[in-house]
């Protein structure tokens, strides 16, 4: 934007025509693929009036789906915070064999199709799976139950926290921690008073993305959940079931909740980016 106001044109400036064509293209694309669908979700959700909207959300199956989704996120996100911090700590502050392999593995869930991730757990823990007979003997239910959904969600959302933290921690090095140690702080004390505050914004950012994905995950969860209404249906699955039953208003009502979650996440993320950019810049100047 600042470039537009400059009097003297720079070599990288485009002609006015090119500039407006590019802007129009970008805005048109945004409107068609992002704003319009979002608007459709909300108009469809309220198409049969507020009463139907509330009824769809308070239906026992819908409430069960919301509860399950929140439960899964409440288990998966904290665990991924712990795993994420541990992995980035190991990668950023230590040298060891197989480090680049570990970095690749952290990214694996991003490169594997979610359906495949779900299938892996079915093959491992399902009735015909590798550990199936043993699990049945001990009466442990994983597939078509909460543990399976949590496992699949953890797998799919694993990279978010680690990927935010690794570059930041590598950039910061370990001098701050070493300083704390020379001043007499124990390892855990140094972590809590020095490391954690240094990474807090990036961590929050990673947690936010992780949470959004944990609540919105469809593919992997669909494979392991078994679609048992009121029991193993998460919100995204519930949306699909309602839609397949031609119950559009109810389907979009539940979908609007997910869309709302996305919007809130986006707002906090933008605010964090603004905050976090400042903190990061201070870190660099430091």
């Amino acid at each position: 934007m600042h470039d537009l106001q400059k009097a003297a044109p720079s070599v990288t400036d485009e002609s006015n025509v090119a500039r407006y064509v590019l802007i129009a293209l970008a805005l048109g694309f945004l409107a068609l693929f992002l704003v319009l669908p979002l608007a459709v979700v909300f108009t469809q959700a309220f198409s049969k009036g507020l009463g139907a909207y509330v009824a769809a959300l308070t239906h026992p199956d819908a409430l069960a789906a919301i509860k399950l989704t929140l439960t899964v996120a409440a288990i998966a996100v904290p665990l991924n915070i712990v795993f994420g911090i541990a992995a980035s700590w190991a990668i950023a502050k230590h040298e060891f064999r197989g480090k680049s392999l570990l970095i690749t593995l952290v990214d694996l869930p991003f490169s594997v199709s979610p359906v495949v991730s779900g299938l892996v757990f079915v093959l491992l823990f399902g009735a015909q799976g590798l550990l199936g007979p043993w699990l049945r003997e001990h009466n442990i239910e994983i597939i078509f139950a909460l543990p399976g959904i949590v496992l699949a969600t953890i797998f799919v959302t694993f990279p978010f926290v680690a990927r935010e933290l690794i570059p930041l921690m590598q950039d910061q090095g370990s001098a701050d921690e070493e300083a704390a140690l020379t001043l007499g702080a124990s390892g855990i004390r140094a972590f809590l008073t020095v490391t954690l505050p240094n990474i807090r914004w990036a961590l929050l950012y990673g947690v936010l993305l992780c949470n959004a994905r944990a609540m919105g995950e469809f593919g992997a969860v669909a494979v392991v959940s078994g679609h048992i209404r009121g029991e193993t249906n998460t919100m995204p699955l519930h949306v699909e079931i309602l839609y397949n039953e031609y119950n559009f208003a109810a389907s979009f009502a539940v979908a609007s909740l997910l869309a709302l979650l996305a919007l809130v996440t986006l707002c906090i993320k933008t605010w964090l980016e603004w905050r976090y950019a400042d903190a990061l810049a201070a870190g660099r100047r430091h």
Binding site: A175, D176, A179, A180, L181, T182, A282
Partner: peptide, 18 residues
């Protein structure tokens, strides 16, 4: 290192930025 009682000053200061 915690028990050695050494005052260590780092090249890039390593001050706690927060």
């Amino acid at each position: 290192v915690q028990k050695r009682g050494v005052g260590f000053v780092f090249q890039h200061y390593a001050l706690f930025r927060h």
